[in-house]
Every structure is written in C-alpha cells, then in structure tokens.
Nucleic acid binder design. Structure first.
Length: 330
DNA sequence: AAAGTCTTCAACCGCCGGCGA
DNA sequence: CTCGCCGGCGGTTGAAGACTT
C-alpha cells in the first residue's frame, strides 16, 4: 500500500488509446522490441505509463492476437480449464493461442458464468448450486414423495414459476431411484444414447481426463467436475425444463459429462430421423460449420452464436426429453 | 424518437512475487 | 535480510453501444 499508481504521476494520459498512440507504440516495439516497460513510453514518445503500454500491447496490439468470437472448442476449453484451475486467467490464456487473459476473463464473466448460473451450476466451484441441491434433499425426504405434497413444497418455495410441478413430481420419483442406485442417471444417460445403434461404438467416455493430461495440467481423479455425477444431474435437470433452457448451454453441459464428445453429438448421421434438425438446412454440423457464416432457416441472417446456440439448445431439448422420457409430463 | 436499462469489454488499480543491489 | 523496482495477475470500473420500454 501507499505506492501511487504509475499513471497518477506526472499527468500521464489515461483512458482509451488513440490510433496515434497505438501507432507509436506498435512502431516502437516493432523496431526496438520491449525491453523495459518503464522506459518504453518515454522512448516511444508516449504520455503513458509503462504499465498502460504493456497492457495495451499484450491485450490489443500484439500481432498474434486472435480477435472475434470465441469458438466452440475454445469455450469448452475455458470451462474445462476453469474447473481445474479456477480464476487463473493467465494460465488458461496460455492454453488458448491468441487469446489474452483479459479477454478470457471478460468472456467468462459476461457469458460462461451466466450460463452456468442459469444451469444451476455454481461457476466458482463447478458444482451444483447449493440452493438447488437443498431442494433435491428436501425432495428426497420420504414424506414428499406424495405428489400433492410436492405441490405444497413448490408453493412453499415459490418455485412454481420456474419449475413445472409435474417435473417436480418426476424429480421426486427419480430421486429414490438415484439413491438406491448411484449409477441410475449415468446408466440412463448412456443407455439412452446407446439405444440409437448409430451411437454404438462411437461413444468416447463422457469424461476424458486424458484431455487434461495432454494439456499438462495436474489432474486429480477426484476432480468432481469431471465426473458426471448424479447430484449434478438431479439439481440441474429442473433447469432444462420448460423455457429454462437457454441457448449456449451445450458446451457447458458437455463439460459436465452429460454428453459424449462432439463427434457423437455433432455427427449428422447420429441425429434421429425425427430430429428437428433434419428440417434445418444445415445438416453438416460440426464445430467448424457452426462458426462459419450462414443464413438462417427463414433466409434471415442469423449470427454465428445464435445459430450455434439454437442448434445446441434444440439438440439438448430433444436429448433431454428422450433421456428422461418426460413428454408425458409436458 | 427519447429515455431508461442492460451488456460488453478496454483499461485501470492494487497487490504479489521474483530479482538484483 | 531488507529494500526498491519491475512485470504480471486478478478484480473492478465505467464509457459506449445495444437493447427495451
């Protein structure tokens, strides 16, 4: 404490950089490199502190910076790495060529974090949010298996607007099964996918710790996030119902082990005949195609993210409904 | 069209650790 | 060992643009 911020000294400029300043900084660094950030601004003729120059260069002007939207794979990587590393943005950035820690941090805070919250996942711990878990534990108490009491519970909790009472009943009915058979959900997830012969022999493990090992990140087999554990499912699944599902949750879900790798999900051959996507012109879904410019179904322009998220959300709705066989409840 | 609200992200701030004197 | 400098990091802010009413 006590040390004054470098920019407060000598009336140095603050705030947004002008194109002229950018040019000066770029020219200087391209000619001389950046030896000493403290002396650089003076040498480059900039009324900025060294710190500001370093930031501007590393976060914006550096030639190898990749600008634009994060790709599907990048988003997946961020979620996976964050689940292991936490807010180590610079370490995460080191695994994403062309992306800066600042950019990743911003993207996390403005996009991914919100999605996880929406899904009932605590972005800090990557575990189910305690408030939702509490609901599950309440549901697990035997007296509440009476559907009418579930209704009472939902009224009590004021969750009617969010959770369909029928689905609360479903949750209540599933929960004892889960308790009796800890593998209940994972078996159902796997089993359901395997119902489609085209999924057979295609499914990689839901969780691929070796992906992390390949990244040379210390990976603990105890990392709860990497286990498609049943608790996550039981608390999250209420959020996938009704209109709670939001676009873009796919990547997050995939990271929580609810789905296989994108090869199995994205392979158009693996889509069921009745799939909504068959009516979509974009049959060749792949992460790459999802990121390419395209025209929406109605000929209107749809942004890449819209399209990607639309696909993902539809896919998940279908899969989730199949998996839970919840049609009768809807 | 205007006002209000929300979202995004570039930039700043304060702190920390490494290093050399 | 201590001190000061420097680079780097993560949290936070606020201007600007987007969106909604």
């Amino acid at each position: 404490m006590g040390r004054t911020a470098c920019c407060k000294k000598n009336g140095l400029r603050k705030g947004p950089w002008t194109p002229e300043e950018d040019q000066k900084l770029t020219d200087y660094i391209q000619k001389n490199g950046y030896g000493n950030w403290r002396t650089l601004p003076k040498n480059a003729g900039l009324q900025r502190c060294g710190k500001s120059c370093r930031l501007r260069w590393t976060n914006y002007l550096r030639p190898d910076i990749k600008r634009g939207r994060f790709s599907f794979e990048e988003e997946e990587t961020i979620i996976q790495l964050h689940s292991v590393l936490g807010n180590k943005w610079s370490t995460i950035a080191a695994r994403l060529p062309g992306r800066t820690d600042n950019e990743i941090k911003n993207y996390w805070n403005t996009h991914i974090r919100k999605r996880l919250l929406r899904m009932g996942i605590d972005p800090a711990t990557h575990s189910p949010r305690l408030d939702l878990l509490d609901l599950s534990s309440i549901l697990s108490s035997s007296s509440l298996y009476n559907p009418s009491q579930v209704d009472n519970l939902s009224r009590l909790l004021g969750v009617q607007a969010v959770v369909n009472p029928e689905l609360l009943r479903l949750a209540a009915s599933l929960y004892p099964s889960q308790r009796e058979n800890p593998n209940f959900f994972s078996e159902n997830v796997q089993g359901n996918q395997l119902c489609n012969p085209q999924f057979q022999n295609q499914l990689p493990p839901l969780v691929q710790p070796n992906q992390l090992q390949a990244l040379e990140i210390p990976f603990s087999s105890e990392t709860h996030v990497m286990d498609p554990n049943v608790e996550q499912f039981s608390s999250n699944f209420t959020n996938f119902t009704q209109n709670e599902w939001q676009p873009g949750d796919y990547a997050a879900l995939q990271n929580y082990g609810f789905y296989g790798s994108e090869q199995s999900i994205m392979d158009p051959n693996s889509l069921s005949e009745n799939s909504t996507f068959q009516s979509n012109n974009s049959n060749n879904f792949s992460p790459a195609s999802l990121n390419s410019n395209s025209t929406g179904i109605n000929g209107s322009n749809v942004s890449n993210e819209d399209e990607r998220e639309s696909y993902c959300s539809n896919m998940l709705k279908l899969e989730m409904m199949e998996m839970l066989d919840v049609n009768q409840f809807m």
